[in-house]
Design a protein around this nucleic acid. Structure first.
Lengths: 161, 161
DNA sequence: AATGAAATCGACCAGCA
DNA sequence: TGCTGGTCGATTTCATT
């Protein structure tokens, strides 16, 4: 994976499309080269399917951490939520009921970036404390929520009889 | 969203492709109808981009819970992990360091299915106890890990100088 | 390994039954 | 809804660097 591959994958994430033409507009990489690159990325297992899901291990984002945030936040500052989402590596962020107020899940390339993540989060004014948990192994990391359901369950849930 | 839409979305998740031809093979819905349906689903916001990311709220999976599992598991039974993944609704599952052994994230259609999720999890032999946290609001639910990074960070992390 | 050109194939849209 | 035909983009192949 070199600079061009990174640019491609980043463009796919940002644009939400795998269209070679659109990717060419964004990256100025020639269309035929985009094909060539994407093929290689698929064959090497970095890209998993037609929907361009990334293999986090293969792509090098193999450190996953769960961070619980205790905050002085009371639902007033919309800016605060924005600030959390600006921290690099934050893939998911939930405002929760119970003891801790936020839970953040981040996928990072190495320990160094973990340090930076925690630092960035603790630097936020409203954040009182953080509590990090390292993930030892990922059993499933799915963005396709329907995957985990049986068709029958979906049908009975989402259609009127 | 009727039965056909559900079948389509489920097929997209399972097959990992949005190819109308492939979807036709799987679902027997005519190709032109697949176009028609997918267009409608995009316009109504259920599908968010060319990569067929679902809007969980729109699709009706608007209840998110984080479940921490304490277990008697010591890395021996591969079957145990399988069992966790068979529970409907489990989108992500991590084996973690620290107090609790597993963390599961599930996206569900209603409280009833939450009940069933917890029941299913607690029914597993190795599971000693569960601790659930409801998500009040989702700030970000991203499956595209590169989204949260600046291009510059990715380049400096993943390319040798 | 990367690119461009040419040819083919599938995706998509419009209009009609 | 579903079908048909035409247009356009996506993809493959091949020749060139």
């Amino acid at each position: 994976m070199d600079e061009r591959d990174i640019r491609l994958l980043k463009a796919i994430s940002d644009l939400g499309t795998g269209s070679p033409e659109r990717l060419n507009e964004e990256t100025d990489i020639p269309v035929s080269t985009i094909h060539y690159r994407l093929n290689n990325l698929q064959e090497s297992g970095i890209i998993q399917n037609d929907l361009y899901d990334l293999d986090l291990e293969e792509v090098g984002l193999d450190v996953t951490v769960l961070v619980q945030l205790s905050t002085d936040y009371h639902g007033t500052h919309h800016d605060f939520e924005e600030t959390i989402l600006e921290v690099e590596g934050v893939s998911q962020a939930y405002f929760t009921m119970g003891q801790t107020d936020f839970v953040v899940i981040a996928h990072l390339p190495d320990r160094e970036l973990v340090e930076r993540l925690i630092t960035d989060l603790e630097r936020i004014d409203e954040v009182r404390s953080t509590n990090s948990t390292f993930v030892v192994s990922t059993l499933r990391h799915s963005t396709r929520a329907f995957e985990s359901y049986e068709l029958e369950t979906l049908l009975s849930e989402f259609t009127a009889e």
